[in-house]
């Protein structure tokens, strides 16, 4: 291989790496924004991170493993996502709490230029009014994100949780 060919090849590798890093950075930013909106109680902005027909589900791992569809939250489209938040704010009763999300192990597969599947682990630490913090839910996100005019958005976000016994209740999405 000539020096010129080698240099071209390095340029190509660099370009690929930069594209991949840029994509990773954009997806990571989306996830950080998602987590931040929930953990800082800006839930009215939560539906905006989904496409208009975006699907959000929280499903226990025991059902997901058996291919069974039922979970504890299923929102089909932004109107249902917004209804969830309106109900949480105006109708439902629950103990005041905060969430802190920890995520790790972000992996992704590019399906086409504007469609990516991604997965990551999450842990939600919940603090209740007695002042104690505890692991409320551990699980894994299975997401499909698409590039839109507003940036990357969730077309589907499925939180598959390991912590099958939900402690008392779940009001706030994870």
């Amino acid at each position: 291989m000539s020096n010129v060919e080698l240099a071209d090849r390095e340029d190509l590798l660099t370009a690929t790496t930069i594209r991949e890093m840029t994509l990773w950075y954009e997806l990571y930013r989306l996830q950080e924004r998602y987590v931040s909106i929930i953990d800082t109680d800006r839930l009215e902005q939560w539906p905006d991170l989904f496409t208009e027909d975006g699907v959000y589900e929280i499903v226990p791992k025991e059902n997901a493993d058996l291919g069974l569809p039922v979970g504890i939250m299923h929102c089909f489209g932004r109107p249902m996502l917004r209804d969830r938040i309106v109900s949480l704010r105006k109708a439902n009763l629950f103990e005041p709490h905060t969430y802190r999300h920890m995520t790790s192990g972000l992996e992704f597969t590019t399906l086409d230029a504007s469609t990516v599947d991604m997965q990551s682990n999450y842990v939600v630490v919940q603090t209740l009014t007695d002042g104690e913090s505890g692991v409320y839910q551990a699980g894994r996100y299975f997401d499909r994100v698409v590039r839109t005019a507003d940036g990357w958005r969730y077309q589907r976000k499925r939180a598959v949780y390991d912590t099958s016994r939900v402690r008392t209740l779940l009001a706030t999405p994870v």
């Binding site: 939250m73 299923h74 779940l170």
Partner: peptide, 14 residues
């Protein structure tokens, strides 16, 4: 309508 019942049930979580 699984949204209505269960631990995150809109009409039953309380």
């Amino acid at each position: 309508q699984a949204n209505l019942v269960g631990p995150a049930g809109l009409i039953s979580m309380e």
